[in-house]
Design a protein around this nucleic acid. Structure first.
Lengths: 127, 127
DNA sequence: GTAGGTGCAAATAATTTGCGGCTTT
DNA sequence: AAAGCCGCAAATTATTTGCACCTAC
């Protein structure tokens, strides 16, 4: 994958925020520095970079897909009302159970989704 | 909400399967008994019934929304490769932690998503 | 009788793709 | 120069909506 102005800006922009922007939101950010960038390019690059593991793709909303510039191991939760996606720290134990504890202890945010990145056997086995 | 042939068939069909069908899949099922049912009617009814709590709407895939005829308290997980959504029992402890234990103990299926049905404070507080 | 429901077709919304031209390497 | 990108516009996919007709209560 070679380096282009568009790709670099998209990645920088994605990494500069802690929200988990949609392709559209990244497009609006990147347009400020590369005014004639196209939405298709943003989609293509986000897709490409998530395939390569440079960024993370979040399929946590039914409507829009979101992206995360942080590829370190952590979980997310999403509010079913507003659709926002928040980071969830792993907690002291560094396990999912720990993350659930952190989630419960948060004042205000009660949490919605926890994401575990594994694949079911049916898929690993081929089809 | 009054009872119509279409609505009744949609609900029966949804309840008759343990997969978590998309609107499209429900449409294909219901068409067998009500050949001239329209996809719009299926969408409208699934949406309506999930608002009323008669069925559950699952926003677990980025692409398609899925529906569950089982409204009892339970969680789901989704394979990130094939997109299928499976039920996850709550386990002996009847808690999320219990469900995670069940998930881990399953041979083959290792799990992907856990869903907690709560809302974040920002939403409860108004906006 | 009428409020609510239905089918159809058109409209949105999110994402993907074909293609001719431009840029890295 | 060649492979890889890009912008644009058209195509797809999932879902929603407007409207005229229909039907359960």
């Amino acid at each position: 994958m070679r380096s282009t102005r568009q790709r670099d800006v998209i990645l920088e922009d994605l990494r500069s925020v802690k929200t988990h922007p949609t392709a559209d939101e990244v497009y609006e950010m990147s347009r400020k520095r590369v005014p004639d960038i196209s939405l298709a390019t943003v989609y293509r690059n986000l897709e490409r970079m998530s395939e390569l593991g440079v960024i993370t793709r979040l399929d946590l909303s039914a409507g829009k897909r979101r992206y995360d510039g942080d590829v370190s191991r952590h979980y997310h939760f999403r509010c079913p009302v507003c659709g926002r996606v928040f980071d969830l720290s792993l907690g002291e134990s560094h396990t999912v159970e720990g993350a659930l504890g952190v989630l419960r202890s948060l004042r205000g945010v009660e949490g919605v989704l926890i994401e575990l990145k594994r694949v079911c056997a049916k898929c690993e086995l081929g089809s």
